[in-house]
Write a protein that binds this DNA or RNA. Structure first.
Lengths: 148, 148
DNA sequence: CCTTGCAGCTCTAGTCGCTAGAGAGATTAG
DNA sequence: CTAATCTCTCTAGCGACTAGAGCTGCAAGG
């Protein structure tokens, strides 16, 4: 049986994060030692590694909860799994597209700066006047990231 | 003088967000009508448009605070402005790179799925075993987005 | 003049996925 | 046995809002 610190080392998930996952029900409540410390077995380690990996791929915790639920039903067709993964791919792609538009605009803006005084700075000027922009980068979609 | 709702329409910033910006000191405290309602003039509208545009480009509020402070010192050289914009560009670029790595991995994973039963699903399997991945997509940097 | 209904007010709490800190108790190496 | 390190619970904070409760203001129609 592993202590929480050991599990943390083996999976790369920080100790408070493991406790947080337990708190929100993503990890089951751990067994406890006589002194009330959490103990983990192989199943818990597999589950946590799965979560870690899915988080690394940007899946939100709710999607991971669904994936974990599905992986416990090995006889079902994997349509739902596929759908979740495709949705995640679509999210990632739209974020990339949005960020590339921002990259373009920032490069244009920075390229025009003559490094003079702020009064003549193109960066400040462009920020103050959206009409000077090439694209409509108005929040067409959310580019919030999955954190971590 | 504009009401908060009118200002919201003209700038595309939602009413609660305007109040939030005032609360955190990004917008100055607005004048008030006799009935305690906020009133805005042209300067406030310009300032809010600037904020909106910078947010659209993904600048965090703290950077915007700095940019606003700098734009009030028109005689200074624009070195600091340039640095903030370049830092933002670097942030955007690293997010793009990370997201593209995730995109690759997701595509590979989804492409391998034979649409059979969950027991044989490659998606679930790959998520459970990081060894099956092409890249080290372990959180090398933060891909959190600027929201909105 | 009076109602109706939208707009605005303040304040609190929730979102996501953690992270940090306080102050206590458990375990382990020497 | 002691000292150092882990672990425990609990609360609060991050960024950038968003949602809701429960008020008041104000303009237009009858």
């Amino acid at each position: 049986m592993l202590s929480i610190g050991r599990l943390s080392q083996e999976t790369g998930v920080k100790v408070p994060t493991i406790r947080y996952y337990e708190q929100i029900g993503l990890m089951p409540a751990a067994e406890r030692s006589s002194g009330n410390q959490r103990l983990y077995g192989a199943a818990a380690r597999r589950r946590l590694s799965f979560i870690r990996h899915a988080r690394d791929l940007g899946f939100p915790l709710e999607a991971i909860r669904d994936l974990l639920g599905l992986s416990d039903q090995p006889d079902q067709p994997c349509t739902a799994v596929d759908a979740i993964a495709r949705a995640q791919l679509a999210t990632i792609r739209s974020r990339i597209a949005r960020l590339q538009a921002l990259e373009d605009e920032l490069m244009r803006m920075i390229g025009q700066c003559a490094h003079g005084k702020i009064a003549e700075c193109r960066v400040i000027e462009v920020l103050g006047d959206h009409g000077q922009c090439a694209h409509d980068h108005h929040g067409t979609f959310d580019d919030a990231g999955p954190g971590r």
